[in-house]
Nucleic acid binder design. Structure first.
Length: 282
DNA sequence: TGTCGCGTGCGT
DNA sequence: ACGCACGCGACA
C-alpha cells in the first residue's frame, strides 16, 4: 500500500483534465487498481472521478467539483452506450450488491454535480469502458476510449422508478478510432459461412431475440473482445440487468415505441435503428 | 451463474 | 473521522 501511494505520487499526484501522459486512447487496464496507481481514475469503486473543492484554486473560472473521468461497466440499468454517444447515469441510489438496481432517488451532488459542471466550459471527460475478459486476472478489462464532452444533463425517472440524473456525452472528434471493441457489424451482408468473417467475436449480439442473427466482428483488439457488458433487446443496447416488461395488451405500436424498457411489443422494423449498433461491448 | 460481504482512497 | 462507491474474490 505504501508502495502504491509512492508510485501514485511519482506518476500523477494531481488530477488533471484531459489526457494523461503516456496513456493513449485504447490503453488497456486489467483492473481498477491499475488505473488508481497511475492516477488515471483514482477510485477503485466509483464510476465518476472528479476534482474536489481543493482544486478550485488551480482552475479559476471553473465550477467545482469538476469531473475528469468516468467508468462504464454496464452495471447501471439506466445507461445507454452507443459508442460515440453515451447516456451515463449519475451516482447514488444504487444497490451495489445483489441485483445492482436503483433503490433510491439520486441527488445532484458529488460526481453528479461534477459532471454537470463539465458542461459549462466544455471540459472533456476521460471515458473508460469495462469489459468481461477471460484473459484478465480479474476477469475484466478496462479500456480508455478517449475524451468525451458532456453536452447536456437532465433528471429522469429510471427503469426502477427512482430519480436518476442522466448525462449525454459525445466523443470529441479528431481522436483515434475506438480501438476497444471496434466492432464492425456485418448486418445486411450474408456471409457464406461464419468462418468467413475475420475477427468474429459474437455470432448474434441479440442472443436469438431477433429473427435474424446480428454477428459482430472485431478486427482491432488483440485478442478480439466480445461484447459482454451489455446485452441487446430489439437491437437496442442496454445494461445487463434491464428486464423486458410485459407486453402491453392491445398495443399497436408496430415498433414505434421501440425502447424495450417501455414496451415489450417493440419490434425491429427494417433498417430503422434508433441507436447505432457499431459498438458491441460493455 | 448469482449473491454476498469485505475492501479502501477520496471528498466532505 | 466518516461515509460513499459501476470491485473482486469467495462460496454455494
Amino acid at each position: 500500500m505504501y508502495k502504491m501511494l509512492e508510485t501514485r505520487s511519482v506518476l500523477n499526484p494531481k488530477k488533471r483534465v484531459g489526457d494523461i501522459p503516456g496513456i493513449k486512447v485504447g490503453h488497456q487496464f486489467y483492473s481498477r487498481a491499475e488505473m488508481v496507481v497511475v492516477g488515471f481514475h483514482s477510485h477503485w469503486l466509483n464510476g465518476i472521478d472528479y476534482m474536489g473543492m481543493a482544486y478550485k484554486a488551480d482552475y479559476k473560472d471553473y465550477q467545482f467539483p469538476l469531473a475528469v473521468a468516468i467508468v462504464l461497466s454496464g452495471m447501471y440499468e439506466d445507461d445507454l452506450d452507443n459508442a460515440d454517444e453515451i447516456v451515463y447515469t449519475g451516482q447514488g441510489g444504487h444497490n451495489l450488491t445483489g441485483d445492482k438496481r436503483q433503490i433510491k432517488d439520486q441527488k445532484l451532488e458529488r460526481g453528479n454535480l461534477a459532471l454537470k459542471h463539465c458542461i459549462d466550459r466544455d471540459v472533456p471527460v476521460r471515458v473508460i469502458r469495462g469489459h468481461e475478459c477471460a484473459n484478465s486476472y480479474t476477469g475484466k478489462i478496462y479500456t480508455y476510449d478517449g475524451l468525451y464532452k458532456v453536452v447536456k444533463y437532465w433528471a429522469d425517472k429510471g427503469i426502477s422508478g427512482f430519480t436518476v440524473y442522466k448525462y449525454r456525452l459525445r466523443r470529441v472528434p479528431g481522436q483515434p478510432m475506438l480501438t476497444t471493441n471496434q466492432v464492425q457489424f456485418v448486418y445486411g451482408r450474408v456471409p457464406q459461412s461464419v468462418s468467413e468473417l475475420r475477427g468474429m467475436v459474437c455470432e448474434d449480439i441479440t442472443g436469438g431475440q431477433e429473427n435474424y442473427p446480428i454477428p459482430a466482428t472485431n478486427l482491432v483488439d488483440e485478442p478480439p473482445v466480445p461484447p459482454s457488458g451489455y446485452k441487446y433487446i430489439n437491437s437496442i443496447q442496454v445494461a445487463k440487468n434491464v428486464k423486458l416488461p410485459k407486453a402491453v395488451a392491445g398495443c399497436n405500436c408496430k415498433g414505434s415505441c421501440i425502447d424495450p424498457r417501455t414496451c415489450a411489443c417493440a419490434k425491429l422494423n427494417g433498417s430503422d435503428f434508433p441507436y447505432v449498433e457499431r459498438d458491441g461491448g460493455r
